[in-house]
């Protein structure tokens, strides 16, 4: 049992566990919509877009997360507007906007001499550096995002499955799309501390993609995704403690391991295991 309790003697590890659990939860819940609506690229896009805001906030000695949040939300709303007005696909408008915002961040960062120390955490995440006040903010935002998802559960479900009919039945699908983008932006900013700009998309996509392999029910997909997200965060943090490696990347790799396990065991299709056994049997017959 010392194995499990040892890391918890350090205050910074306790804070990291609390934060990682909250972040794992909120990412895996909103990630369900990301996977079912094919928005994987958006997670990556919004994270990158936030970078300009973070650097600007850094230069102006302003709250870095607030700076990142403003840029992510503005980009989220801009993505919808650009793709609507200009006839280009959502993917393309994300590609244009997020790289532009990221480039702005890099350009401004090149003016800062000591950026390596301060801004690197935003690129790769450093959950061990989270302080008490950050945890409080993360908790409030996570509760907010999850409450909104719960309140609009049935509308988000209908609009995700069949937007045309949902609209014909009077569900405001456009407003819901923007709401979802803003929720994603908040989720991503909250999660930067854990995984950083480069890896945060994995926290959104991998647990939900794992759950998608294992169930045919929307509610169950959310539940399984949440379990995978939280368990990956905790297991990943323990592993990073004992292996003395970076926490964000370890959490992502643990979630990825669950994903491949789920593919192998998925009841939805002929599992990889039976496929392998059958292949061996056929091979034996041929011989």
């Amino acid at each position: 049992m010392h194995f499990l309790s040892d890391p918890l003697h350090n205050d910074f590890m306790v804070r990291a566990f609390v934060a990682a659990t909250l972040i794992g939860l909120v990412c895996s819940i909103t990630g369900v919509y990301v996977v079912l609506r094919n928005l994987s690229f958006i997670g990556d896009g919004l994270a990158h877009a936030s970078f300009a805001g973070i650097v600007i906030a850094y230069l102006l000695k302003f709250n870095l997360y607030l700076g990142g949040l403003i840029f992510a939300v503005v980009t989220a709303l801009g993505i919808g507007a650009v793709s609507k007005k200009s006839e280009v696909s959502l993917d393309t408008s994300i590609g244009v906007l997020f790289t532009a915002s990221f480039a702005l961040g890099i350009m401004l960062m090149s003016r800062v001499r000591n950026y390596v120390v301060d801004l690197q955490d935003f690129l790769f995440g450093n959950i061990l550096a989270i302080d008490r006040r950050d945890i409080f903010i993360v908790a409030v935002l996570v509760v907010l995002v999850l409450s909104i998802v719960a309140l609009f559960y049935k509308e988000l479900l209908f609009a995700s499955f069949d937007p045309i009919t949902a609209a014909a039945n009077g569900i405001p699908i456009e407003a819901l799309s923007y709401l979802l983008l803003v929720l994603l932006a908040v989720t991503i900013i909250v999660s930067l501390q854990a995984a950083g700009i480069v890896l945060v998309a994995a926290l959104l996509v991998t647990p939900a993609a794992t759950a998608y392999q294992l169930t045919n029910r929307f509610g169950w997909m959310m539940f399984i995704s949440a379990c995978v997200g939280v368990v990956s965060a905790i297991v990943g943090l323990y592993a990073s403690y004992y292996l003395n490696v970076a926490s964000g990347s370890t959490i992502v790799l643990v979630a990825t391991a669950w994903f491949f396990l789920a593919i192998a065991l998925s009841p939805k299709r002929r599992s990889l295991l039976t496929a392998l056994l059958e292949a061996r049997r056929t091979a034996a017959k041929v011989r």
Binding site: L36, L157, S160, F161, D162, I164, Y212, T215, N216, R217, F218, W220, M221
Partner: peptide, 8 residues
């Protein structure tokens, strides 16, 4: 117009 592998 819809994704029939949606989990419902």
């Amino acid at each position: 117009s819809v994704n029939w592998s949606f989990p419902v």
